[in-house]
Simulated scan of single mutants.
Amino acid sequence: MSVQIEVSIQDCFWDRFVLENPEPNSSPDQSMESSPLVIDCPINETEWENWFQIWLNHLHSDLPSASSYELSLRLTDNTEIETLNTQYRSQNKPTDVLAFASLEVDCPLPPEILSSQSLYLGDIVISVETAYNQAQEQGHSLKTELGWLATHGLLHLLGWDHPDDESLTEMLNQQRVLLEIIGLVNSLR
């Protein structure tokens, strides 16, 4: 089954992302003052769209029936994601990824609407700043970390959750599968 998908991208395709206050380098020869860190964009718009197309085709059994699907991806910094995390999750701290699933709203649509219009799955917000730091800590690329976080957000949009260890393990395993099918093997998690 081939799924039609439209990916709406908001403010996330940058040539360079500047972190104004990166975490200080732990190297003793570096001063405690940190200068802005410039991160080159590892993923272009076409690649993001291809990834989501592949992932949704793989996850088609988790999708409600519709003629096509749409989602929003926003790549941002820790300041913005902390604001969202505080506002929507009452957690006053930055996080790596947030997912706002539109399918959680109990508003059934008639089959004729689903077959003729795109179904909006929701929004994924990723902090590039946190993703960069986590990639450094995990010893893999920013591209891999962004893919990892995007798969996590996508699964949440489709109703996956991890309230216990068993469901978390299942979700993490599915994320690994999704990374493998696009050629990003991540054995570090």
Rank of each mutant, 00 (worst) to 15 (best):
25 N>M: 13
64 P>T: 11
42 P>Y: 06
66 A>M: 03
35 S>C: 09
80 E>Y: 08
61 S>A: 11
25 N>I: 10
148 W>R: 15
122 G>Y: 01
72 S>T: 15
8 S>I: 12
79 T>D: 13
85 N>D: 01
2 S>E: 11
71 L>G: 06
9 I>A: 01
172 L>R: 15
128 V>R: 12
102 S>M: 08
26 S>N: 15
185 V>W: 09
78 N>R: 11
151 T>L: 04
94 P>S: 15
71 L>Y: 09
164 D>R: 02
76 T>P: 02
68 S>R: 04
132 Y>D: 10
64 P>R: 10
84 L>E: 03
60 H>N: 12
99 A>T: 04
8 S>N: 13
88 Y>D: 00
132 Y>T: 08
171 M>V: 03
173 N>A: 09
178 L>A: 07
94 P>Q: 07
68 S>M: 04
173 N>T: 13
173 N>G: 06
137 E>L: 13
7 V>I: 14
130 T>L: 05
162 H>P: 02
16 R>C: 06
68 S>G: 07
53 Q>M: 03
55 W>V: 01
7 V>T: 11
77 D>Q: 06
36 P>S: 05
160 W>K: 04
153 G>E: 03
73 L>E: 03
1 M>D: 14
104 E>W: 08
157 L>W: 00
35 S>F: 14
36 P>F: 03
179 L>K: 00
65 S>A: 09
20 E>K: 07
138 Q>L: 10
10 Q>S: 12
79 T>Y: 13
64 P>I: 03
158 L>V: 04
148 W>I: 14
151 T>E: 10
26 S>K: 15
10 Q>F: 13
12 C>R: 05
